[in-house]
Amino acid sequence: MKMLVNVIFPIEPFNSMVRNGTAGEIIGRVIDDIKPESVHFCEQEGNRSAVMIVEVPDASAVPAIAEPWFLIFEAHCEFRIAMTPDDLQRANLTKIAEKWSDIPVS
């Protein structure tokens, strides 16, 4: 399944890695290992961050994606399941709505 992974880097140790010239090389190694479908770098909550789409065969793959960011950068990682329009179509929202629409809402 596809997952959207948000990685938020705290100011340190990232600033120190930028200053000593290792940030880019280390990020490259991590990305080469994770092999995301896409990765974009941006700002989140005033911090440097990365947003990746990764293919996750099952939950046991999550630590291999998260741990490099945790261990090297002391980063904060968030994982969300990402659906394509086809995935949403296969969910059969009409059938789900029929099942749950008769429950009264106060």
Score class of each variant (00 low, 15 high):
99 K>H: 12
66 A>M: 06
84 T>A: 06
35 K>W: 07
39 V>G: 01
77 C>N: 11
32 D>M: 14
93 L>D: 08
97 A>S: 13
26 I>D: 07
30 V>Q: 09
37 E>R: 07
49 S>N: 04
101 S>G: 13
70 F>I: 14
89 Q>L: 13
104 P>W: 01
100 W>G: 01
50 A>I: 04
30 V>I: 10
26 I>N: 10
40 H>W: 10
39 V>A: 02
75 A>R: 02
84 T>Q: 04
42 C>W: 07
63 P>E: 00
94 T>K: 15
96 I>H: 00
94 T>S: 15
82 A>V: 15
61 A>E: 02
26 I>E: 10
78 E>K: 13
95 K>Q: 11
65 I>P: 00
101 S>L: 12
87 D>E: 12
35 K>D: 11
59 A>V: 08
81 I>G: 15
47 N>Q: 06
30 V>K: 06
88 L>Q: 15
59 A>K: 07
104 P>M: 01
35 K>C: 11
86 D>C: 13
77 C>P: 12
68 P>F: 01
92 N>I: 05
71 L>R: 14
93 L>Y: 13
102 D>H: 11
25 E>W: 03
99 K>E: 15
44 Q>R: 12
99 K>G: 10
95 K>A: 10
35 K>E: 10
86 D>A: 12
68 P>N: 00
79 F>M: 09
35 K>L: 06
31 I>A: 09
50 A>P: 03
50 A>G: 02
37 E>V: 10
69 W>G: 09
29 R>L: 03
97 A>I: 12
37 E>F: 08
78 E>T: 14
85 P>M: 09
32 D>R: 15
53 I>Y: 01
71 L>W: 12
43 E>M: 11
47 N>T: 04
91 A>W: 06
81 I>Y: 10
76 H>M: 14
55 E>V: 03
101 S>T: 10
47 N>L: 05
28 G>Q: 01
25 E>F: 06
70 F>R: 10
50 A>W: 04
102 D>W: 08
100 W>F: 14
49 S>I: 02
53 I>C: 01
37 E>T: 06
102 D>N: 13
78 E>P: 12
50 A>V: 02
28 G>V: 04
67 E>Q: 11
31 I>Y: 13
73 F>C: 06
63 P>G: 05
27 I>V: 11
28 G>R: 08
83 M>D: 15
32 D>G: 10
98 E>G: 14
60 S>V: 03
59 A>H: 08
48 R>G: 08
54 V>C: 05
54 V>N: 01
26 I>V: 06
34 I>P: 05
95 K>G: 01
72 I>E: 13
39 V>Q: 01
32 D>I: 07
53 I>G: 01
89 Q>M: 15
82 A>E: 15
28 G>C: 03
92 N>P: 10
28 G>A: 03
46 G>R: 00
24 G>D: 10
77 C>R: 08
45 E>I: 11
46 G>P: 01
33 D>K: 12
